[in-house]
Design a protein around this nucleic acid. Structure first.
Ligand code: MN
Ligand code: MN
Ligand code: ZN
Ligand code: ZN
Lengths: 159, 159
DNA sequence: GTTATAATTGTAATCATTACAAATGAATAA
DNA sequence: TTATTCATTTGTAATGATTACAATTATAAC
């Protein structure tokens, strides 16, 4: 089936992106070409990319792009409350457009980061009476099912 | 009351330190002067010190001390399972001798880090079926009661 | 258009951490 | 003891992510 170009474009619109664009215009933040592309990248890649991954990938379509722009823009989005950061590994900061509370699992074998849902409101916490909690980060690590299966296979082959 | 020196020494022995020393000798890790001092520092400072804090403080009593030794020794202790690391802030790694599961709160105002108890075994987690979880880190941030009180005072003075 | 302001870019600086080789210390055998 | 070997420490240089800053380019206001 052939659709008119305009209609096909509509189909692949990312609802997350539309929401984010509105948040920026509401805050009177100008949407430049670079900012738009970075926003789009973040909305399309919920895989918690690093600044360098965003830069390397976008550089292909914007050859003049500077890494400073990536950092400037990420900070702008961060301060505007559009994204959050992950300090789950020791090497690089990662960025996430999903602001709803959720935990992150880092596979120490393959480096993949997985989301999971965790409800902290019902876990009993002691020692934070009188504290004003504004952010909650939960980082787990270990081995993902994919790596566990692969390690299992390698052991079987050896025997 | 005057006690003999030997007895007074016994009183100020840190039970955490004794446990840690035993763990090292069990693993046949030689306790050099530097390693002993670093271990002692960690046991005496449950305040999650950075490598630089350990270095700066110990340099006073060991003027020849090198920062590389701090990093080498911390890695040694880490791999021996004596300590754990905190990636709660973006700047520096922090070290903790308390291995029992507990959460950490970073005050965004004063930078202090507080321990708190949290029981994750009863919180319902979805999305980690088939994962092998080996470490659990919980980082909260916001404002500590001390800073909240200070901010309150400052506002009252202004009025 | 001209001018003022905002955004982007390139380069240099920062700073925690690591790599590496030389110097020192401890253990062991002759 | 002395020589030899191995472990530990030290100093310095390299790494790499992030930031500072000034020059250039784009956008908005007039
Ligand atoms: Mn996420
Ligand atoms: Mn702690
Ligand atoms: Zn994996
Ligand atoms: Zn505080």
């Amino acid at each position: 089936m052939h659709l008119p170009l305009a209609q096909r474009e509509v189909i692949r619109v990312n609802p997350t992106l539309e929401k984010l664009k509105k948040q920026l215009s509401d805050k009177d933040i100008h949407l430049s070409h670079q900012r738009m592309k970075i926003l789009q990248y973040l909305a399309d890649h919920p895989s918690h990319p690093t600044a360098d991954q965003i830069f390397t990938d976008l550089k292909k379509s914007i050859p003049t792009l500077s890494k400073t722009t990536i950092y400037n823009t990420l900070r702008l989005f961060l301060e505007a409350g559009l994204i959050r950061v992950l300090n789950i590994d020791d090497y690089e900061t990662r960025y996430d457009t999903v602001l709803e509370d959720h935990g992150h699992f880092l596979c120490s074998q393959c480096g993949s980061i997985y989301n999971f849902s965790i409800d902290l409101t019902h876990s009993d916490i002691k020692g934070l009476e009188g504290f004003d909690i504004s952010a909650r980060d939960v980082y787990f690590s270990g081995r993902c099912p994919h790596c566990l299966a692969r390690l299992q296979d390698e052991n079987n082959v050896k025997e």
